[in-house]
Amino acid sequence: MTHSGTVSRAGRIASVPEKISITLRVNDKAVKLQVAPWTTLLDALRDHLDLTGTKKGCDHGQCGACTVLVDGRRINSCLTLAVMKEGAEIITIEGLARDGVLHPLQQAFIDQDAFQCGYCTSGQICSGVGLIAEGKARTPNEIRELMSGNICRCGAYPNIVAAILQAMERS
């Protein structure tokens, strides 16, 4: 029996669209780059700008490792097209420390041992910075709920909550 496993509707696409020239503001710097229409903000950061601190854990908005701040709000960069963020203010994990001094939440993550392998950490920290700015979480339960979009397979959750509480107290 022959089973046709064609993965795509190949042949329908005559040519691949041209790349688009865009300017992004990343960590207070304007950067120009050429991207495909389907280049995600995540891929633009990691592959085009070599800002690999933002992580790819699922590429589908299911893990939160790619969390960055866009205009001050935490979002999943894997489900965001780079072309749609022209002119937006993007802050990644690389942009949190100032003059070599860690952001209070970065320091709190070290103090509270809020990570192990480190792969979800950038997303957790950006998400935590976003959470503190939102001002909607005060209790541990509220932090747990509003940090549930960031999966940590190493299981550092209680320490992540402790780190956020530490940073909230100090800011």
Partner: peptide, 9 residues
């Protein structure tokens, strides 16, 4: 529904 990141988007 979803996560705060997704709700922001």
């Amino acid at each position: 529904g979803a996560s705060q990141q997704l709700r922001n988007m």
